[in-house]
Amino acid sequence: MGDLMAEEMAILPGMEEIIGLLYINQYIEEQSYNVIILDCAPTGESLRFISLPSALEWFMDKIFHLERTVMRVVRPMAKPFAPIPLPDDSYYAAIERLYRRLKGVDKYLLDPQVTTARLVTNAEKMVVRETQRAFMYLCLYEIAVDAVVVNKLIPPHVMDAHFKNWLTAQMGYVEQIEDYFAPIPILKAPLFESEIVGLERLRRLASELYGAQDPTRVLYAEKPYHYRFEDGRYILQLKLPFASREHIDLYRDVDELIIRIGSFKRHILLPHKLLKSRIRSASYKGDTLLIEFAEASES
């Protein structure tokens, strides 16, 4: 195995995402920049990046301290017989230090006045479907989407017969995108005559997308979920656009709800007031999952 391949394979899964989060936390705490822009990878890797803080918090709250205590007791007895080296306490201390350095980054990621996502799509059937899925999963992880950018639109003045069908198809998909994602702003970027490289072309792209608007301004800030009180009961209202009812699984743990869609899941910590309340009903209406909690006296 070559040195380059060995180095790539030695990177632990998730380490790049963790390093990215550490830098974000550092830059925000130090106020190093006015705006931080993350050019995220395709949907799956972006979701792994977004879900890391909640996954690590769940591990630290539910498993870490128990595992560390068990290892302290078991290690001296099992060490002579274990086929692999058992982690010593410094391993757990390092994880704890990492967690402390990451702690708090989720409050920045989940605040729609601080962090928003802008989805970039093309006016093509499969790409639009992938963008719908990305939007659904971002809502699941409470990331506010404040705009959808439709990229590489053929300008209407292009009359070449070769592009006629493409132009007609794109117009139809743009209408679908506007319907699907309303009321989120839809920004449109034309297909330029050359690749967008360099400051001048970036300024031209910015002018096409934003006009006189400030690109750093939050364009739409609705939170993906909130609680409301109605008829003496609390209802959790969670926006899950483009989900299918049969693909949504809902579980209740002691102090949290677990919502799973396919291979992705989200842990939602329940407020103290609802810890003793059971789930009375759950329904999926339009693009919203409604979870109704029984009063404590009914539980």
Rank of each mutant, 00 (worst) to 15 (best):
L202V: 08
L202A: 08
R203F: 05
L205C: 07
L205E: 04
S207N: 13
S207L: 09
E208F: 13
Y210P: 07
A212R: 13
A212N: 14
Q213R: 12
Q213I: 06
P215Q: 06
P215D: 04
P215E: 10
T216H: 08
T216S: 14
R217I: 15
R217V: 15
R217C: 15
L219W: 07
Y220L: 10
Y220S: 05
A221K: 15
K223N: 11
K223Q: 15
Y225P: 00
Y225R: 07
Y227A: 07
Y227P: 00
R228N: 15
D231R: 11
D231S: 11
D231W: 03
R233T: 13
R233K: 15
Q237I: 04
L238G: 00
K239A: 14
K239V: 12
P241D: 01
F242G: 02
A243Y: 01
A243H: 00
I248C: 02
L250R: 03
L250W: 08
Y251K: 09
R252D: 04
R252A: 06
D253K: 12
D253T: 12
V254R: 13
L257D: 03
I258A: 05
R260G: 00
I261P: 01
F264G: 01
R266V: 06
L270R: 02
L270Q: 09
P271F: 06
P271N: 06
P271E: 06
K273G: 00
L274P: 01
L274E: 03
L274C: 00
K276G: 15
K276V: 12
S277K: 03
S277E: 11
I279S: 07
R280K: 11
S281D: 12
S281Y: 04
A282Y: 06
S283Q: 09
G286E: 05
G286D: 03
D287C: 01
D287R: 00
T288L: 10
L290P: 07
I291R: 08
I291T: 09
I291Y: 10
F293H: 06
E295P: 03
E295L: 09
E295Q: 11
E295N: 05
